[in-house]
């Protein structure tokens, strides 16, 4: 089936099998390998992207479901050669170690601040409930989100 999906501002048209997951469309068709696959069970959030302005797990969405839509991935966050403030904050606050969960964490955190610009610690932790990190213990991730929100 033919799909047209705008990714990070560029429209792509591709012929795909209906069973192709959006994450594989991004990684294998478009070579955007910043979006990771961390589980088989839709639980880890490593694959989180924004679809039509909403946070979604790209491993739990078919490319054909996203047809006609607009996707933003971690590669699309920077502007004019500058990292997104959330990316800067993760860097500053050491919100990552191996980095595998980081693209998903950042996409989730950006969506969180869009709906709640000044979250409490508790709201940040609840907001990140669907993102698993095996390295950091989350402490510095929460600190990064707070820093990006300017609520240090």
């Amino acid at each position: 089936m033919k799909v047209s999906i705008k990714v990070n501002g560029t429209l792509y048209e591709r012929e795909v099998e209906p069973r192709m997951l959006l994450v594989h469309f991004l990684r294998e068709e478009l070579g955007l390998t910043g979006t990771n696959v961390g589980c088989d069970t839709s639980q880890c959030g490593a694959c989180n992207v924004h679809l039509n302005g909403q946070l979604v797990k790209s491993c739990t969405c078919l490319a054909v479901q996203a047809d006609g839509g607009e996707v933003t991935t971690i590669e699309g966050l920077k502007s004019n050669g500058h990292l997104h403030p959330m990316q800067e904050a993760f860097w500053e606050k050491h919100g990552l170690q191996c980095g595998f969960c980081t693209p998903g964490m950042i996409m989730t955190s950006v969506a969180l601040l869009q709906s709640n610009p000044h979250p409490t610690d508790e709201e940040i932790r609840h907001g990140l409930e669907g993102n698993l990190c095996r390295c950091t213990g989350y402490q510095n991730i929460v600190a990064a989100v707070k820093a990006a929100a300017g609520t240090k």
Binding site: S42, G45, N48, Q54, L55, V56, K57, T60, C61, T108, A111, L112, G127, E129, G130, N131
Partner: peptide, 9 residues
């Protein structure tokens, strides 16, 4: 239900 991404879909 689940987490924010699950609730969105």
């Amino acid at each position: 239900v689940g987490d924010p991404a699950v609730r969105n879909r």
